[in-house]
Design a protein around this nucleic acid. Sequence first.
DNA 1: CATCCGCTTGACCGTTTGGTCAAAACAGAC
DNA 2: GTCTGTTTTGACCAAACGGTCAAGCGGATG
Lengths: 216, 216
Amino acid sequence: MSRSKSDEAQQAKPLSRIQETNRKAILEAALDVFAISGFRGATIDEIATKAGMSKPNLLYYFKSKRAIYQQVLEQTLSDWLAPFAELDPTGDPVEELRRYITAKLKMSEKNPNASKLFANEIIHGAPVIGDFLKTSLKTLVDEKAKVIRYWVGEGKLAPVDPYHLIFMIWATTQHYADFDVQIRAVVGSQAGRPGFADQAAQAVLTIILNGIRPRQ
Amino acid sequence: MSRSKSDEAQQAKPLSRIQETNRKAILEAALDVFAISGFRGATIDEIATKAGMSKPNLLYYFKSKRAIYQQVLEQTLSDWLAPFAELDPTGDPVEELRRYITAKLKMSEKNPNASKLFANEIIHGAPVIGDFLKTSLKTLVDEKAKVIRYWVGEGKLAPVDPYHLIFMIWATTQHYADFDVQIRAVVGSQAGRPGFADQAAQAVLTIILNGIRPRQ
DNA sequence: CATCCGCTTGACCGTTTGGTCAAAACAGAC
DNA sequence: GTCTGTTTTGACCAAACGGTCAAGCGGATG
């Protein structure tokens, strides 16, 4: 992942202090706005106001709405996939998956907007990260699927299709971020209480881990 | 659910043949467009064109974009929840849940746009169906949670929080509709093959049902 | 043929919004 | 203070879009 000199839109010029803080403020504001309103629903004006500057000023730092979106999406993606990449073939399968699921749930709790941003992009057909999904992500998933298949072969996991197991983990963990409004509506005031996230984690871990633990 | 005479926006006037077909065409087109583009992203023009009529003509049948959205959302919701309401307390728990999950997966496969429409609405904060979630849906879920808790009490299911089990089933089944683009990107050409949906169903059922089957 | 009424449409309007631009404000170097 | 490059902004533009309206169309009824 070395940054070649022809890396698009990234001149060697070092960012000034003021540029750095402003770009950061914009990206943070953009994450919130894009997550809640989607790409089409978000307006540059709203992002600018939330970032504490005027619209033309924002466009001085990013040349278009799409450019902001792309940047914040890319930045989010690597954070998002980091714990997945860390699944360790030499570790204990159940423990490895427990760690991964726990990490993912914690991320959904701490930064639900990142999850919503991603969900929005996918639901709308992944116009921006479609290529990434078909190349980098696919490669990564294929690799981890092999690991899971190996674990199954060793008898350390019940026989289960690795891809669908991965999808299931993604679905379940992200659900708590993407559908938080529905969850809050259904369980009422309980959702705010401090223990709720732990309770969710315990339930999810119980079902999935029991579901894939080898039985004899 | 009897339709009172003061039922909003629903006069007693019977719909003519042409009205019926046109309204149906509009709602079908609207489902597609809203699911892919979201509420803000969808345009009346696109819906009208897809329904085979002009924009003013569409607005002759529905008084606003929001009215179409509301209608198609409501219509979708009842279909969507029907199999959930049919969970039978007197049946065998594992078989009941198998039936429910299978039905839900089939719906996601047959009508992914309905799922995407719903997902979009929730992610954006459920501005239209927020009240419904907090009243009707909550009541229904509370009721079914009691059923699951009863099953657990009878020793017919492993001890598991009913709400989180329900969320997990929703998350997993809807994932195959909402995130189909990502799934297709990751598994490649396999996703198109006829057996893929069955394979997914088998994996999901295996994990969840093994996860909640009583162990001793 | 004339009338009526449900259906359809082209033309139009006001608002929102992404994006531009030229000029002003500012900051630092000398 | 002056000069130079960076940052900020008010004013503006063109396109897209939701929605309106008055006029046209067409088939059933008399």
